[in-house]
C-alpha cells in the first residue's frame, strides 16, 4: 500500500519535471519510481490517510502564510545583523521541549524553527530540541520554549497530529 503510493507520487513528480510523454522517457520514469519505492518506501509517512482530512488542509492553509511572514521577517533580521558595522549578535545554544510527538510534526517544527528569525535547530533528542539562537533572550528553558516554539506548536499539532 505504502509502496504503491510512493510509486504514484514519484512517477507523478517525474512526469511534471520532464514534461514529456515520449514512451522512452515515461518508461525510464516508471522504472526509477519502482526502484525508489523499493529502496525508500519505509521512510514515507505511516498514516497517509491523514492527508485526506480537510481540517488538516484548512490549518495548513493558515500555517503557510504565517510561516511566510516569519520567514521574510527572519531575512530582514539577518540582513540587519549582517549589514550593521558592529555585528550585533549574542549567540548560544538553548534547549527547548516540545509537546509534539509524531515524527512528521517534529520535522516540520524543526524546519520552521530553522527558517524563522535568529534560530536554527542543531540537534533533536526525543522531545528536546537544541536550538542555536543568534541573539539569546531570557534565562531559563521555559522562557526559551515560550519564545521559540509556541508560535508554531498549536498550528502544527492541528495539521500533523
Amino acid at each position: 500500500m505504502k509502496s504503491v503510493l510512493c510509486i504514484l507520487f514519484t512517477f507523478g513528480l517525474w512526469l511534471l519535471l520532464t514534461w514529456s510523454l515520449d514512451p522512452k522517457v515515461v518508461g525510464v520514469g516508471l522504472m526509477m519510481a519502482i526502484l525508489v519505492a523499493t529502496l525508500l518506501a519505509h521512510i514515507y509517512p505511516d498514516n497517509p490517510h491523514k492527508a485526506l482530512d480537510p481540517r488538516r488542509w484548512f490549518w495548513a492553509c493558515i500555517y503557510f502564510p504565517y510561516f511566510l511572514v516569519l520567514c521574510i521577517k527572519s531575512n530582514l533580521d539577518v540582513a540587519y545583523r549582517v549589514l550593521h558595522p558592529d555585528l550585533p549578535i549574542r549567540p548560544g545554544i538553548v534547549k527547548i521541549r516540545t509537546r509534539l510527538t509524531s515524527e512528521m510534526a517534529k520535522t516540520f517544527l524543526a524546519n520552521s524553527i530553522t527558517l524563522t528569525p535568529g534560530t536554527m535547530t542543531v540537534d533533536i533528542v526525543g522531545q528536546d530540541l537544541y536550538i542555536h539562537w543568534i541573539n539569546v533572550h531570557g534565562v531559563d528553558a521555559e522562557e526559551h520554549t515560550r519564545r521559540i516554539v509556541r508560535p508554531f506548536e498549536g498550528l502544527l499539532r492541528r495539521v500533523f497530529e
Partner: peptide, 9 residues
C-alpha cells in the same frame, strides 16, 4: 553555526 543561520535563511 552563525554562518549557517545566515546562509540557510
Amino acid at each position: 553555526y552563525n554562518r549557517l543561520q545566515a546562509g540557510t535563511k
